[in-house]
Nucleic acid binder design. Structure first.
Lengths: 291, 291
DNA sequence: CTGCACTATGAATCGCTAA
DNA sequence: GTTAGCGATTCATAGTGCA
């Protein structure tokens, strides 16, 4: 067993980070903060107009505790208010840049089974933003860890295997370092794009996991290696911590709501007992392709 | 033959709109302006830092000529500059709001065949923004015109049909110019979402159609009815005008580059002669599904 | 007319070199 | 010091040509 930690804190994330964590601690911060006007019982219902003001002090702490070569992934989407898309998300990007963050990329999470509904003036919203922020232009990125099987057109290609293709395949294999995930399927694999196709998890009964396991899993693979440190300052029911634990990453999760805190503690306790069972579960479930 | 107009102007769009068109003329404005730093020979290569300043006067004219219940669809995407995503697009949204536009929605165009490439710090960019702006909260939207068949049912059904039927059905499903799509589909169709999946058209020979026909087609169906007026102030090679003509909408296209202007004129001339031929072409070609 | 093989080509981005 | 230009990289799609 590795000397790995899974720490869950209970309380306000800005406060806890300020009091308990040194600068340059985390390799990856990934979180899905409460959206404006939602989860009102949990966070006092931040109003859209006040969202930026509310989030900025937190983002400042996050900037401090992130390592210089680390990455911050922010899952967020603006609400429709009064028939318009509210601007708090894009305002937040501009403000965070003023505070020193680099806005490196915007991934799209395409929610294949988005919430049903019909409105006279808009269609169902089936995507969310995954904003990537960094502290410096040089950050760690392990692209080989998230390669995906190539499209169907490759099947035809593999049959003949021209000389050019052979050369190119060899070159690709040589360049890859560490574990070659692509060998799972024995197929050629390619790098993904910045659009993630992914169904939301229809969870059992109460705790609707709006944050499917695939998301932290994918970004943890992409931006960290084993024994790195992962932070989720709005842990919710503990998804990020559980996934980090499973992937042999150290992690810190912070959650303010007592019920969620309790749940997260339970999900990450007694890891040894559940490990084999859960790992098996993972390997069969996460075959979703990103194309 | 209906009394329908397809007008192509040659010149600067802000100028031409100012001098030639009344306020509240158009039901739909849809365009894909030159992106920052691209098409430098054509448009002088607007620098990212100057993009907002360049576009605002144009957006002011567009606001004027749009009908109160009309819609403006802006296809745009920010560049990566110095390892960061540039902020000119989100700044533009904020500025346009200050000038009176409502930012109603943001559609995602997922480009299935995006440009290849590999970089140490980012993946391939496979999406673009389709920003929806309006003048008022009450705008025309004909949602039934863009309904899509339900996945499994449609797939199974299509397999059993003869080839002739397939072609006919595909045409009905996907383009359906002047046909009652919902009739045939009955209750087996659903409303789309705000994510459009669509490949760019691999163009034959010369004129690059970065703006695939499906895009204007879809939004023209969604936001206009027959005999309405459509404007594309950056017409390019004439895609929007051709599609509008095909769909029995009046249209105005403005293009500054002489070669493109000429091309657009040719594509929309002698409509009667080409009509049947082109309609047939449409019905077999546009089988792309949006799901 | 169908099916398969083959090929050209994209609103790209980074990093280096030259001026 | 800054900027402008060019090569290398890479993959899904549609069109063409041929059996």
């Amino acid at each position: 067993m590795k000397d790995m930690e899974t720490i869950i804190h209970h309380g306000d994330c800005a406060e806890i980070l300020h009091n308990n964590f040194d600068a340059n601690t985390f390799d990856l911060i990934i979180t899905s903060p409460p959206y404006a006007d939602s989860r009102s019982k949990t966070y006092g219902g931040i109003k859209p107009d006040e969202y930026v003001k509310w989030f900025l002090p937190i983002s400042k702490e996050l900037l401090r505790v992130l390592k210089p070569d680390g990455t911050f992934i922010l899952n967020i989407k603006e609400k429709a208010v009064n028939g318009e898309r509210h601007t708090y998300v894009i305002e937040l990007i501009l403000e965070m840049k003023k505070h020193g963050w680099l806005w490196t990329e915007e991934f799209i999470w395409h929610k294949k089974n988005c919430f049903p509904g019909k409105w006279p003036n808009r269609f169902r919203d089936s995507w969310e933003r995954l904003l990537q922020f960094n502290k410096s232009k040089k950050f760690n990125m392990y692209q080989e860890a998230v390669m995906v099987p190539v499209g169907d057109w490759a099947d035809n290609r593999l049959k003949k295997l021209s000389d050019t293709d052979k050369i190119r395949d060899n070159a690709k294999n040589n360049s890859g370092f560490g574990k070659n995930v692509s060998n799972w399927l024995g197929r050629k694999s390619v790098y993904p794009t910045n659009v993630l196709h992914l169904a939301t998890e229809c969870n059992n009964r109460k705790h609707s996991a709006v944050f499917p396991k695939f998301l932290p899993e994918w970004f943890i693979k992409l931006f960290t290696k084993e024994n790195d440190w992962v932070l989720d300052p709005f842990l919710g029911s503990g998804t990020t911590s559980e996934v980090a634990q499973m992937m042999d990453r150290n992690s810190v999760g912070i959650e303010i709501l007592p019920e969620n805190y309790k749940l997260a503690k339970e999900r990450t306790a007694h890891f040894q007992n559940k490990m084999f069972e859960k790992k098996a579960e993972y390997e069969t479930n996460y075959t979703a392709r990103n194309n």
